[in-house]
Simulated assay, not measured.
Amino acid sequence: MIQRVSNIPNPRSLVVIRQATEEDLRLMASYLIRYLPEGLFPRLGHRFVRRWMQTFLSEQYGVALVAVTNDAPRQQVGFLIGSTNQGRHVADVLHQHKQSLLLAGLSALCLRPRVLLHFLRTRARPYLRRILGRTHAPDAGTTSQPATAVITSVVVLPTVRGGGIGGLLVEEFLERAGADQASLAELVTTAGAAGAGTFYEKLGWTCVEERHSKDGTPIHAYHRSLR
């Protein structure tokens, strides 16, 4: 049934989009590492990625969604993580989870010398400045500026891509972002055929910038107005 997704005009009849749970994190972490290996976090391994993903479950502005098949057994075929207010979400995570994430990250780096060297070359200074800096209570820096929602990662299994599941995940995220009064949604994806720019453009997103990631990979930034 799963392999017939691309031939079904209404993917809602095949999958359910729901809030992720702790039990979903194992597969979510595995999918991220396998299908979105770019960047630092996937290189830190399954345990760190799972711990990082937990912050999208526990914090107010975090969003963690999964797409599961509507038949038995219910199989997880995709997920989305992001935040409906990126500034507040980052502040919450640093306030509540800075020490545990720091310990998890250091442990992962110590087990991976090559990743550690790469981290020291590309990210050490800004990461340490943020981690070692003073962390304020989440409401201490509240401003009147409109909130910006950010999609961090979207994964749909290759066997079911093209059936609209990714669009349903993004649609649910945008509804939650709008409910939290976000005025703009942002994301970045790898430039060219290796990225998902065409997918997002079909959903109404606009490419606003091309730059390079900390690893030197060309990436495109996309915006979607929520007003």
Results as ranks from 00 to 15, higher is better:
residue 154 V to C: 09
residue 52 W to R: 09
residue 35 Y to C: 03
residue 217 T to P: 00
residue 51 R to M: 08
residue 178 G to D: 04
residue 114 R to S: 09
residue 166 G to L: 00
residue 86 Q to T: 12
residue 61 Y to C: 02
residue 132 L to F: 11
residue 93 V to F: 01
residue 159 T to I: 06
residue 189 T to L: 13
residue 81 I to G: 04
residue 15 V to P: 03
residue 39 G to F: 07
residue 34 R to A: 14
residue 30 S to R: 11
residue 27 L to G: 07
residue 132 L to M: 13
residue 137 A to Y: 07
residue 15 V to N: 03
residue 206 T to R: 13
residue 209 E to C: 01
residue 188 V to K: 05
residue 123 R to N: 14
residue 57 L to Y: 08
residue 83 S to F: 01
residue 97 H to C: 14
residue 63 V to Q: 04
residue 147 A to W: 06
residue 199 F to G: 00
residue 171 E to H: 10
residue 95 H to S: 09
residue 147 A to N: 13
residue 53 M to N: 06
residue 165 I to Q: 03
residue 208 V to G: 01
residue 64 A to Y: 01
residue 66 V to E: 00
residue 143 T to N: 10
residue 73 P to Y: 05
residue 160 V to A: 05
residue 97 H to N: 13
residue 169 L to A: 06
residue 158 P to F: 13
residue 30 S to T: 12
residue 31 Y to L: 14
residue 34 R to S: 14
residue 58 S to Q: 13
residue 158 P to I: 08
residue 47 R to C: 01
residue 212 H to R: 15
residue 102 L to P: 12
residue 14 L to R: 06
residue 216 G to M: 07
residue 26 R to E: 12
residue 184 L to Q: 11
residue 152 T to L: 03
residue 184 L to R: 10
residue 105 G to A: 15
residue 16 V to E: 03
residue 45 G to D: 02
residue 113 P to Y: 02
residue 101 L to F: 06
residue 66 V to F: 00
residue 108 A to I: 02
residue 208 V to R: 12
residue 67 A to I: 10
residue 195 G to V: 09
residue 154 V to L: 10
residue 71 D to T: 14
residue 5 V to A: 07
residue 117 L to H: 11
residue 209 E to G: 04
residue 121 R to E: 15
residue 35 Y to P: 01
residue 91 A to F: 13
residue 120 L to K: 09
residue 219 I to Q: 07
residue 190 T to C: 02
residue 201 E to N: 06
residue 85 N to S: 10
residue 114 R to L: 05
residue 103 L to P: 08
residue 52 W to M: 13
residue 75 Q to T: 15
residue 132 L to C: 08
residue 215 D to F: 10
residue 144 S to C: 12
residue 108 A to L: 07
residue 116 L to S: 10
residue 15 V to R: 00
residue 174 L to A: 08
residue 191 A to N: 02
